[in-house]
Amino acid sequence: MRKNKWVNYLSILPGISLFLMCLVSCERTEYDLADPESTGVWKQYSTSNSALPGNSVYDIDVDQSGNIWATCYGKGLAKLQSGTWTTFNTSNSYLLSNYTTALEPVTGSVLVGTTSGLSIRQTSGTWLYYYDSSVSYMIINSIISDSRGNYWIGTEDQGYYFYNGTNFYHYLSGYDVNAIAEDKSGNIWFGTDHGLFKYNGTHITTSTTPVLNTSNGLTSNSISTLYPDKNGRLWIGYFASKTASWVDNNGVNQLNLMDGEEITTIWDIQEDKKGDIWFATGGSGLIRYDGVVPHSYKEYNTPSVDDDIYCICQDLEGNLWFGTSSKGVIKYTLPLE
């Protein structure tokens, strides 16, 4: 009988456990959760639905505060801050031309390349500019600020300019320098119409012999864009080619874009937060390479995109921003896996 009584007392244990579990589960931490419905969404900003000054966007980038900057060719420079576009042009700023072609945000300042030289909007809102009067024209194709604080400016036909904070120096005159990129080791790479050049970080080469061209692995000598990814690969895009290349420790590798076109120009390359590589192309829209297969995003299968896309950047939250030839700016929030 005594044994039965003990067994009876034991039977209340599940009840106690149940209520304890109820109470414990009520003390769960609350999280600020993102909505999965907000992913996989394309959003367009154009002159018809926003204050973006032009629909032809040559370059796009994000500053350290998360503002989006876009060069609207023929219409100046636009900045998207807190959902509102602000325009800078020759009538309200010291932009050298409304034909803006390249930009590089640098710790509060913005370097803006135009078809008439370099303009710099400083943190204070004042403007500086640089134009080399020794050349007949100064069309800027690309700008970067390297990890040492130097500026590198690539031009059409006039080679590139190096600015060390004090003076501008001019190299590779007569070459198109279409793209400049810094890799993880601090090397500066120049994509030109004569192949790939390299500055190794210790001295500036004045050699006119490229480190890579068609004779040692490139598909074409006409390089349109460069992009160093997180895995140490330097991606190379070309004018009028059906492949992209990447350079790693094993040499030069080729990627067929599988876009159904005989030739495509790759205008820009960007790695997303998943590690996929995106190509902005002329005529083939967007191509995303997931490490195995290139996936095509063209107007016929993704009406939100343009078949001619000039530039890509990734904002601080990992969203991709595309500058198009005629549809303005497109924001893409990556889908969940």
Partner: peptide, 9 residues
């Protein structure tokens, strides 16, 4: 996903 917590469906 990539450092951001997304609500499960």
């Amino acid at each position: 996903y990539w450092g951001t917590k997304y609500k499960n469906p």
